[in-house]
């Protein structure tokens, strides 16, 4: 590399190597421009906070946490994506989301012993009990939370692999749900996010 500066010394000089590394004015200007662009990218990234949730469960009780956190984070100004996979897909399913069930077994906090909970029809009983409480307490329904979250700009993603596994169709989901995405998309969102949650 040659330079036009008067500081250039001969190859024999003690500063010869250093002098050869002095970049031209044009090169410096280009580098400054490059750094300024990078800096503005970083600044832009800092302004938008991101949250990434992976929703894997489709029971009535487990459908609430991702939706409540997603809508609340959106209210805080976060860009939120919720990646729904396996039973989590049911939360985005127009019909199934209205009929999510609460399991009467496997939860020691339930008012019925497992032996009784395992009887036919008990899931329906515990689900009705929970639905009544949700109604009595004016707790938002799953459908309301989905609609609210979509209004607030939350991006709901339905995992393509499990859509096919469950034999669902794109039309089964609420309008605005993103389909045709996989684990790589979720990883990318998580890598960019300030908060990552698996529910």
């Amino acid at each position: 590399m040659s330079t036009d500066t008067s500081d250039t010394t001969t190859e024999d000089g003690p500063n010869g190597d250093a002098a050869e590394e002095i970049p031209s004015r044009a090169e410096l200007a280009a580098r400054v421009e490059e750094l300024e662009e990078e800096l503005s990218d970083v600044a832009a990234g800092q302004n938008s906070k991101k949250m990434s949730i992976v929703a894997t469960k489709g029971t009535l009780d487990m459908a609430y946490p991702p939706l409540i956190l997603a809508s609340t984070a959106a209210a805080f100004g976060y860009d939120v994506t919720v990646f729904h996979t396996f039973w989590g897909l049911d939360i985005l399913h127009k019909e199934r989301s209205k009929n999510l069930k609460l399991s009467s077994v496997g939860n020691p906090n339930m008012p019925v012993p497992n032996m009784v909970g395992a009887l036919p029809g008990m899931d329906r009983v515990t689900t009705s009990m929970m639905e009544k409480r949700i109604n009595d307490n004016d707790t938002a329904t799953i459908e309301e939370l989905i609609e609210t979250s979509l209004d607030m700009g939350v991006e709901f993603q339905a995992c393509q692999m499990t859509i096919e596994l469950m034999d669902y169709d794109e039309d089964n989901f609420y309008d605005g749900v993103t389909t045709g995405v996989g684990a790589a998309t979720a990883i990318q969102d998580m890598a960019d996010a300030d908060i990552q949650l698996l529910v």
């Binding site: 409540i68 809508s71 609340t72 959106a74 209210a75 805080f76 307490n137 004016d138 707790t139 938002a140 939370l145 609210t148 209004d151 607030m152």
Partner: peptide, 14 residues
């Protein structure tokens, strides 16, 4: 009034 978490925050934001 009557609404519970997360609606007060979400509706306030809107």
């Amino acid at each position: 009034k009557g609404a519970s978490c997360p609606m007060p925050v979400v509706q306030t934001k809107s």
